[in-house]
Amino acid sequence: MDLRNILDAAAKGVFPPPDGATTVVPQLCARDAGVLAFTAHTVVFTDEPESWVRAALAAVDCDAFAASMNARFLNSFMDRTGRAHDTIDLLTVASALAGPPPLELREIRDREHPRVTRALTRRDEVRVWETPGGILVLGRGVGGRWEAAIEVAEDVRHRGLGRQLALAARHLVPAESVWSQQSPGNARSVRVFQWAGYRAVGSEALMLMPGLG
């Protein structure tokens, strides 16, 4: 089973067995490497030898269930690959919805737009929409999955715009499901996506190529 199959199954609510094991699979593209943690099962996606992954995990002095998300392993991963790492995100997914989005959006077609160029460093097939005070980004990220990200200007917060943008992504995604990552510490963002119907499926530590951290 490759990374795409694992993610497709998770989007449908089918997860790896909760057996405390770690599955190692190849990267699907040069850009994306990292770690996924599901309930009592982790997946490391990397082009590094599996023997190195197993040895690095074994060297971490902690419970085996936590080793793949332990800072010592993640540091070893960065040292080995020269990659950077931002944070461990909550990984969420929602099914697509029919019909138009719940607010008026204008698509930004200028590929030199700052928000578009930034998104293109981390995703493929990027599309970006704007509405007064907000931005919605859709693009193909890890494993080819469709991912949504939103931005809301500080002066229009607490008016429900973030919720509407997160919900709009479910209407605009050209696939059966859309994914999104939120930092667990960003409780406001977590609540926004939960309200919009995104359900938590695990956590993710994405290792960024040099220059993207």
Rank of each mutant, 00 (worst) to 15 (best):
E147I: 11
G143P: 07
W146Y: 13
R72A: 15
L90N: 07
H85Q: 10
P100F: 06
A153Y: 04
P18Q: 04
N5A: 15
P26Q: 08
D2H: 13
M207S: 01
V43M: 01
R145Q: 15
A175S: 12
G185P: 01
R122W: 04
T92Y: 02
E204P: 00
L3A: 04
V93N: 10
I6V: 15
R118E: 15
K12Y: 09
I6L: 14
T46L: 12
F77A: 02
R170C: 09
L105R: 05
E48H: 12
R31S: 03
R157C: 11
G185C: 05
L105T: 02
L136G: 01
S180E: 05
L97V: 13
A175G: 07
D155K: 03
E130A: 14
L167M: 12
P17Y: 00
G211T: 11
S76G: 15
G82D: 07
D19T: 09
T87A: 09
R80G: 01
V44Q: 04
P18R: 03
V156K: 04
H85M: 13
E151V: 10
A58H: 07
E176Y: 00
A119N: 04
W129R: 03
E176W: 00
P184N: 08
Q164E: 08
N70L: 00
T131P: 02
L7F: 06
A37H: 09
R54G: 01
T92A: 15
A149Y: 00
V53H: 02
F73T: 08
C29L: 14
A30H: 11
L167C: 09
Q164F: 02
T46E: 08
A30R: 13
V190F: 03
V173T: 08
F193L: 14
R106Q: 13
A71T: 13
A200F: 05
M69E: 14
A33N: 06
I108L: 14
H158I: 00
D61N: 14
D79Q: 14
T23W: 08
T117R: 15
L28Q: 14
P114D: 12
N75Y: 10
N75Q: 14
P100W: 06
D155W: 05
P100Q: 13
A71M: 12
A9Y: 08
G185T: 03
M207R: 01
F38V: 04
R72Q: 15
A56H: 05
L212T: 09
I150Y: 02
L97H: 12
T81S: 11
A64Y: 05
M69S: 10
H171Q: 07
D86L: 02
A119T: 07
P132Y: 05
A98R: 15
G197E: 03
S203E: 13
G197D: 03
H113S: 05
L3E: 07
H158D: 13
F65G: 08
L3F: 01
C62M: 07
R115A: 13
N5T: 15
N75H: 12
F38S: 04
L91W: 10
S68G: 12
M1Y: 08
D86N: 07
A98W: 06
P100G: 06
L138I: 07
F45C: 11
M207Q: 10
E151C: 03
G13I: 08
V142G: 04
A33Y: 03
L206G: 01
L208G: 00
W129V: 07
F73P: 12
